[in-house]
Design a protein around this nucleic acid. Structure first.
Lengths: 208, 208, 208, 208
DNA sequence: AATGAATGAGTTTTCATTCAT
DNA sequence: GATGAATGAAAACTCATTCAT
C-alpha cells in the first residue's frame, strides 16, 4: 500500500516534470501529450488518470512553477539587509532565477497568451502572490526613513520593473540577438546586463 | 493588369492582416490556417499560393510587424529634442505602441518560443534592427556633454530596459492582474505605470 | 494479453492485405489511405500507428510480397527433377504465380517507377533474393553434364528471361489486348502462351 | 495568322513533351499538372485549352508514343533481310529502342495500370497495332520454307516474347539490381543481356 | 497502478480545374 | 493565344482522448 502510494507520487512528479519541459519548449498549443508521456517514461493513459486532460495538466505545471519561485523568494530574507543591499539582492536573484529557469519565462508567456485562465480556477491563488511585495514595501520604507531612498515608490511597480528588466532581455533573447547581431548570453554580456540593471534600479531609488 | 495586380496585393495584405491577428491571439502552434482564411475572407488555398506554408506566413507576418514598428520609430525625430525630453518621448512611445499593438507582444513571444528561427532566414535582417539605437547613442552623448546625463550608458542596454519595463507589464498583464488582484489596464493604473517608468529611466539617467 | 497481441497482429495483417490490394489496383501515387482503411475495416489512424506513413506501408507491402513468392519458390524442389522437367516446372510456376497474383506485377511496376527506393532501406534485402538462382545453376549444370542442355547459360539471365516472358504478357495484357484486338486471357490464349514459352525456353536450352 | 498557328503547334508540342516526361517519371497518378506546365514553360491554363484535362493529355501522350515506335518499326525493312538476320535485327531494335526510350516502358505500365482505358477511346486504334506482326509472319514463313526456322510459330507470340525479354529486364531494372546486387545497366551487363536474348530467340527458332 | 490498441474530429497541405481579363 | 488569381474537393497526416484489460 505504502509502496503503491510512493509509486503514484513518483509517477505524478515525473509527469509534471516532463510536462513542464514540454510546455516550456513548445508552448501550450505546441506541446504534445504523446511527447510528455514519452519524456516521463510512462503510459499516456496515466496522464489522464492523474490530471484529467492537457489543460489541467498545464494548470498543475503552472501552479508548481509559481510555488517554486515563491519558495525561493521566501528564502531571500531581504528584511535582514540594509535597504540598498536588499534591493540589489532582489535584482540579482531575479536575474539568476530567470537564467536558471528559462522554462519559467516561456510558461508565463503561455499562461498570458491564454489570458491566465489557468490561474483563474486555481484554488490556491494565494500561493501565487509574491511574499516579496510586503517585504519590499518594508525595505522601501526603511530606506526612505534612513534617507537613502527616494519616497513615493510603489513596491508593486518596483517589483514589476525589476522583473521586467530581466524578463524582457532573457525571454526575447533570441529575437534581440538576431537583431543586434550579438550573443546576449555570452558571459560578458550577462555580467554587463546585470550591472546595468542594478545601476538603473539603484540609480532611480537612491536619493539625490 | 493594374486591376489584377492590385487585387493580388489586396489579397496578400488581407491574408497578412488576418494571419497577424490569428497568430497574435493563439500563437504559432495554436493558430489555425482555416481561421486565417476565414478572417481574410479568402480561399484557404490562396494562403498557400502566396505564402507556401504556415511557417512562411508567420515569417512574413513577423517581418511586416518589425517593419511597422521601425517605421514608427523613424518618425519620432528624437534628435530634435532636448536629451531628457527625447528619452521621455521614447518611453512614452514604447508604452503607447505596445498598448495599441498588443499583437506585437505576443508575436514576439511566439517568435522567441521558436528561437527566432523565422528571423534567421530573413534576408532583410537589416530592417529588423532599430534605427533608434544610433539616435539614442547621440541623445545620450548630447545629454552627457550638457551635464544632464550620467556617462557610460550603453544605448542598447537602455533601449532594452525601456522596452522591458513596458513589455513585461503588458505582456504579462493577465498573470500579474491575477496575482495582484487588480486590473493593470485600468486608466489610473496605466498612467501610474507610465509615470513610474519615466521616473525610473530618468531617475537613473539624470546626473545627480 | 494474448488476445490483445493477437488483435494487434490481426489488425496489422488486415491493413497489409488492404494496402496490397489498393496499391496493386492504383499504384503508389493513386492509392488512397482512406480507401485502405476502409478496405481493412479499421480506423485510418491505425495505419499511421503501425506503419508511420503511406511510404512505409508500401514498403511493408513490398517486403511481404517478396517474402510470399520466395516462400513459394522454395517449395518447388527443382533439384529433385530431371533438368528439362525442372525448367519446365519453373516456367509453369512463374506463369501460374503471376496469373494468380496479378497484384505482384503492378506492385513491382510501382516499386520500379519509384526506382526501388522502398527496397533500398529494407534490412532484409537478403530475403528478396531468389533462392532459385542457385538451384537453377545446379539444374543447368546437371543438364549440361547429362548432355541435354547447352553450356554457358547464366542462371540469372535465364531466370530473368523466364520471368520476362510471362511478366510482359500479363502485365501489359490490357494494352496488348487492345492492340491485337483479342483477349489474351481467354482460356485458349492462356494455354497457347504457356506452351509457346515452354517451347522458347526449352528450344533454347536443349542441346541440338 | 500563320505565325499564330506555328506558335500554337509549338506550344502543343512543348506540352506533349513535358507531359510525356512527367507521366513517365511519376506515372499518371503521381504526375502533377503544375509540373507539366512548368516543364513546358507555359501557363497551366493552356494545357486545358489544348487538351481538356489531365486524362486526355495522358491519352494524347500515349498515342504519340505509340506513333513514334510504330514509325521506327516501319523503318526496319525486315523483309529485305535473310530470316535469321531479320529476327536478330528485331531483337536488337527492341532492346535499343527501350534503352533509348525508357519513358516508353513506364508509360505503358501506367496505361496498363489503368486497364488501357486511354486506348479504348482512341480513334486511331489502327495506328497502335504494330506493322511488324505481318512482316514477322512473312519472315517466319520464309525461314520455314528455307528450312532454317522451325514451323508453327505464332508471330504474335514471338513478337510478345521478344518484347518481354527486353522489357522486363529494363522496366524492372531497379528491383532486379537491388535483388541481385549488381548494376544491370553497366556496359558489360548490357551487351551480355542482348547476346543472351538473341541466343534465346534464335536458339528457339533455328531448326535443329 | 498501469498499458497497448483504437478512434473521431480535426489540421495542414495538395490538386485538378476554372475565372477574368 | 495567353496568363495570374482564385477555388472546392479531397488528400495525407495529427491529436487529444478513450477502450479494454
Amino acid at each position: 500500500m505504502e509502496e503503491r502510494q510512493r509509486d503514484a507520487d513518483r509517477s505524478q512528479a515525473a509527469i509534471l516534470a516532463a510536462a513542464r519541459d514540454e510546455f516550456a519548449e513548445h508552448g501550450l498549443g505546441g506541446a504534445r501529450v504523446d511527447r510528455i508521456a514519452e519524456r516521463a517514461g510512462l503510459n499516456k493513459r496515466l496522464l489522464y488518470y492523474y490530471f484529467d486532460d492537457k489543460e489541467k495538466l498545464f494548470q498543475a505545471v503552472l501552479e508548481q512553477t509559481y510555488r517554486d519561485i515563491r519558495d525561493r523568494e521566501r528564502e531571500l530574507h531581504l528584511e535582514d539587509l540594509p535597504p540598498a543591499d536588499a534591493v540589489k539582492r532582489l535584482v540579482e536573484f531575479t536575474w539568476n532565477y530567470y537564467l536558471e529557469h528559462p522554462e519559467f519565462l516561456t510558461l508565463l508567456n503561455s499562461a498570458n497568451l491564454h489570458r491566465a485562465r489557468h490561474l483563474q480556477g486555481s484554488k490556491r491563488a494565494r500561493e501565487l502572490n509574491s511574499p516579496l511585495i510586503e517585504t519590499l514595501a518594508h525595505v522601501l520604507e526603511r530606506g526612505r526613513k534612513e534617507g537613502v531612498f527616494r519616497g513615493g515608490v510603489d513596491p508593486v511597480q518596483l517589483y514589476v520593473s525589476i522583473a521586467g528588466l530581466s524578463y524582457f532581455y532573457l525571454s526575447n533573447n533570441h529575437t534581440l540577438s538576431a537583431i543586434f547581431g550579438r550573443d546576449l548570453l555570452a558571459p560578458k554580456a550577462r555580467s554587463e546586463r546585470l550591472s546595468h540593471m542594478t545601476d538603473v534600479i539603484l540609480g532611480y531609488l537612491l536619493a539625490p
